[in-house]
Write a protein that binds this DNA or RNA. Sequence first.
RNA 1: GCGCUCAUAGCUCAGCUGGAUAGAGUGCUUGACUACGAAUCAAGAGGUCGCAGGUUCGAAUCCUGCUGGGCGCACCA
Length: 569
Amino acid sequence: MNRFKEMASNALAQHVAELEPTAIMDMLETPPENHLGDYAFPCFRLAKARRKAPQKIAAEIAEAIVTPDMFEKVVNEGGYVNFYFDRKRLAEEIIRQVMTDGSKFGGSSIGAGKVICIDYSAPNIAKPFHVGHLRSTVIGNALYKIYAHLGYTCIGINHLGDWGTQFGKVIVAYRNWGNEQAIKDQPIQSLLDLYVKFHEETEKNPSLEDEARNWFTRMEKGDEEALSLWKWFSSETIKELEKIYALLGVKFDYYTGESFYNDKMEPVLQELSDKNLLQNSQGAKLIDLEDYGMPPCLVQKSDGSTLYATRDITAAIYRKNTFDFYKCLYLTDYSQKLHFAQWFKVIELMGYEWAGDLLHLPFGRVTHEGKRIQTRKGTVVLLEDVLKGAIDRVSEIIDEKNPLLENKEEIAVMVGVGAVIFNDLSNNRIKDISFSWDTAFSFEGETGPYVQYTHARAGSVLRKAAVDESMDPAGFNGTYLSDDISYQVIRKLEQYDDVIMDACYKNEPSILTRHIIDLAQAFNRFYHDHPVLTAEKEQRKARLMLVASVKQALEVGLTLLGIQAPEKM
RNA sequence: GCGCUCAUAGCUCAGCUGGAUAGAGUGCUUGACUACGAAUCAAGAGGUCGCAGGUUCGAAUCCUGCUGGGCGCACCA
C-alpha cells in the first residue's frame, strides 16, 4: 500500500462519506499529464447521488479539503480533484526511504507467516530443455522473489516429468541400442536419441510398445533393474539441468517430481472412492464433471496405472499437508488450462476448502519463427543455444565498446543471460512469444541490457564522485530535485512499492519489468540534461543522492526478476 | 461441433480492472559524444484500438453477435 496515496485517500474520505475508504483508494488514479498533478480523484460517479455537476463537486471538495501532509496543493480540474505533491519534501522522503531500505526497497511484510508453493519449470526428464521451458522457469522464479520480497515464505518446487510410460520406452531403447558412455557425456541428447530411435523402430516392430508398457509396469511395481535404470537416467539428466539452472540463477527448494508421488496415490484413489466420487467407465476410473461443464477427470487407466491428474491431485494434498500453503501456484502454458480446471474441481468435490487456493497461472507458448516447436521435428530451439548465442553476442559488444573491462566473460554471462530472461518477462504472461534468431540478440531499447547499462552508468557516476563525500540521506535539499525532469524520476521511485504489490497481486512479473524500464528511461533523461559531477555543491549532493537511489532501485528490480546487476559492463 | 483465449502504429508490445489529447520500443528520416559510459538522449513521420451493435455522463477497457489466429475437448504429460 502506497502511503502517499493513502494520505490523499484519507483526506478525501472526510468529504466522500458515501464511499468506502478502500473504494476511494482504488479510484485514485495518476493523471495522464504532468500539469494535472500526481493523483486525481474522478467525481463523476458522485454526480447522480449528489444531484450536482461533477465539476461542482470536485470544486467543492478541493475547496474544503485539508491538504494532506507531503502535498502542496489540492485543486480541481474539470470533474477531478487533483493532488499535487510537495516536490521538495517528496524527493527528500523517497530518497531517504530508498537509502535506508536498501535491498529491501519496495518490499513489505504483508506476507509474513504465509507460505506460497510455486510449481515451476518442471521439464521432462530425457527431453531437451528448449526455449519453451524457459517461460515457466523464469516467471516462476520471478514470482518466487517477488512474493518473498513481500514477506511470504516461498517453496519452489520443480515437479519434474520423471514418471510415465515414456520411461519404459527409453529403457527398452537403451537395452537394445544404448551406450553407457554416451549417456554420461550427453545425457539429455542421448536419451532423446534413444526415444526417437524407439519410435522409428516401433514402426517396424509394434511389439516394442508392449515391451515398453511392461517395463513401466515393472517400475511401478518396484522392479530393481527397471528402477535402477530409471534412477540413473534421472540423475544424469538432473545433473545437466542443474547446469542450465545455475546459468539462469534459478534454484528450487525441492526436486520432487512425479515419481515422488508414486507410493502416495493409492490412498488418494481410496479416498476418492470413499467419498463416492469415483466411477468406472470402460475399465478406467474417473470423476464425472458433467455438472460443471467439463469432460470427466480420468485418474486411473484401464490397465490400472495412474495419470497426470492423479499425480497432481496427490501432490496438491501432499503439499497442503506438508507446507500448509496459503496459495499454491502452477506455471504452465495455457494448453493445460482444462486439465487444471478439472482437477481443481476434483479437490473441491473432495471437500477441501483450500481448493480455491490452487492457482493455475497459464502463459503463452513460444513459437519458432511463427511455427510450433516440436521436439521430434527439427524446429526445436535449445535454450542452451540461445543463452550461448546471447553471451557470445554480448562478448562481441564488450570487445567493441569496452575492451578494457575486467572479468569480461563473467559480465558477458550476466548481460547475455539477463537479456534472455528480461525479454521473456517483459510481456504479459498470456501472450505468445515468437522466437527469432534475428531479433533475439538485439540489446537496444526496452531490453535487459538497457536497464543493466543504466545501472552500471549510475554506478560509474558514484565511483567518480569519490564516495567519501557525505551520502547522508538527510543531508541534502530536495528543492534541487523539483524540476520536471528530476521529478519524473522521483515519481517512478514513489510508485515502486505499488508496482511490486500489483505484480504480486496479478502474478504478473511484466508489470515490474515495464516499470524498471520506465525508471531507467526517466533516469537517462535526467542524466543527459543534468550534469552531476560538475554541478554546484548543494545541487551536486542532491543529484548524487538521486543517482544512488536509482541505482539501488534498479538493482532491486533486476534482482526480483532474477537478473544480475553488474557494476560495470 | 462445444469451450477457452488473443486481435491497439510497418513490426514487438504498454494502456493502472470504465476516466482527461490512446503511449513506449523497434524500423524509417534527422540532430547530439574535447560534461559524469552514445548498449545513451532529442526531434519527426506513423492509429477506423479486427468489424457491427449495446450499456452510460464517458468504452481500447464491460455485454451481445460476427470475422480471423491460437489452444483444448476420457485412458499423453
